[in-house]
Design a protein around this nucleic acid. Sequence first.
DNA 1: AGGTCGGCCTGGCAGC
DNA 2: TGCTGCCAGGCCGACC
Length: 301
Amino acid sequence: MPELPEVETIRRHLAPHVEGRRLTRLEILDPRFALPLAPAALAAAVEGRTVERLGRRGKYLVWELAGEAFLLLHLRMTGTLLLASAADYSRVRFYLDGAPVLTFSDPRRFGTGELALGRPALEAFLGARLGVEPFDPAFTPAHLLALTRASRTPVKSFLLDQTRIAGVGNIYADEALHRARIHPLRPADRLRRPQVVALRDAVVAALAAGVEAKGATIDDFRHPDGVQGSFQDEFLVHRRAGEPCPSCGTLVRKLVVGGRGTYVCETCQPRPRTARPPDPPGARPGRPAPAPGSRPAAPRR
DNA sequence: AGGTCGGCCTGGCAGC
DNA sequence: TGCTGCCAGGCCGACC
């Protein structure tokens, strides 16, 4: 599933092929792609325009077209862009002057193309959906601290919320939490300051490692030239249930957090004390002593 | 207002 | 072998 590193990898592959070229035709084979616009309306709005830049914001690939028209492509779960290769599940084809046909392939048909006309419309669209960009200098420990203080949701769900931090998906959330040694069920507002700092660094490091490895190839993700990324070989915990944690050897467990498959080493990432009744009046907050002999919830599986 | 849950969609796989 | 049914999951909209 394309997350920030996979989308960035695609962008880097594709940019030299499309920037400066004219988009002569956008062939929309599946009308769902263009909703709420009709396919013809979306095509008409972009055809004939030159691609000035291929950008990215969060998990969106942003086609910046001449005359301030923007096509926002979201690959969702299974979307892939393939250059000049026979593709199954083709939903859209991009025809560019002097470049091979680019095919948007997407078996589950979740991917979307949205149109923004004018830079204010683009900013409004993205601003309503996306929070801070993880590689932006604005993503500071102080910024993350402020975000965490405002949310009691489990930190895993917190990381997946694109309106807070843009671009982190299920893979990189698991990997970042493991790097930061934080349990995914810990409420965001219960992170201690050093943990927030560690989490910020871990999110950046996990995403950077993903970009470095040219993304992870699981399920359907491919580079535009069909090559596969290698980050899946570097997963520390994600999709490694039953395998030993690379740090300590404890077997990685799979949990469900916020409805998502979540992988964790519960030795490196100790479970938060469960049930947190509100602190009794006058009690010192924090650190209720676990009952002697109590163990973190028994593994079930 | 913030969190939770169902729907979208279909390939792949477990189970019979 | 072949069928059924469930799971995956980013995001949105409905709901509480």
